[in-house]
Amino acid sequence: MSTARHSPVRSIAAHAVLATYTIIALFPVFVIVINAFKSRKAIFRTPLELPNADTFSLVGFETVLKQGDFLLYFQNSFIVTVVSLFMVLLFGAMAAFALAEYRFKGNSLMGLYLALGIMIPIRLGTVAILQMMAASGLVNTLTSLILVYTAQGLPLAVFILSEFMRQVSDDLKNAGRIDGLSEYRIFFRLVLPLVRPAMATVAVFTMIPIWNDLWFPLILAPAEATKTITLGAQVFIGQFVTNWNAVLAALSLAILPVLILYLIFSRQLIRGITSGAVK
């Protein structure tokens, strides 16, 4: 059994499969990034070639950065993502703690209700959401996006976190209670640090769809002041002419912040995925 697992043939095969998958997954990203550094002609003539002395051009980035609002779009995306993420993690963890820790009437029903959102896409409610936002005067504000994304992220967060919180030792929480810690201290100081890997997992799964979303920014906050980066990049896609240099440059830039956030969480994430397997 253990010799089979360590045989070189198997290990090469496993690596080959993983490498193939990695290449397939990263290929589109790779093409976007290399083409962002090429002149318009080269993009169409030799889309798969690396930029060389002839074809290298930063015109896309120049266009993007000259288009003064671009930094603002970035900022909007960043604010929306980070604030939504914070709210999802905080409220998700709190709800998960209550579901996992306290016995009350309708506990499991409540858990089911909160998890229902995983199966029903929030976009089905777009019309109603738009009406609500219009009624409360939140159209074209970042708040509207933050509220929607918080709602969108909560079900999965509650579901995953409550599962993890059930595994936190009761004895530890009880020891805290005997030492006179408040329920809030127990939650923040004892339980949260122990489910940190799960929090990181939830953070990554929550963050990426928010950052990439085009739907809700387009519907709820299309105004110039509240455009997000994915929506902002659309200005370069015209009905008749598309400024491919600028689109590719904008998309390349848009990858950076998520990449950074991901790197921050990934150390925790790996532990989250493998926890339970290795104690």
């Binding site: 004895d171 020891a175 209670r177 005997i178 030492d179 006179g180």
Partner: peptide, 20 residues
């Protein structure tokens, strides 16, 4: 009376020390 005010102390099977 909450546990912390009962004048008791408890030792658990799983030790339950604060890991941090």
């Amino acid at each position: 009376t909450p546990p912390s005010k009962r004048g008791i102390a408890m030792v658990f099977q799983t030790y339950a020390l604060y890991p941090h």
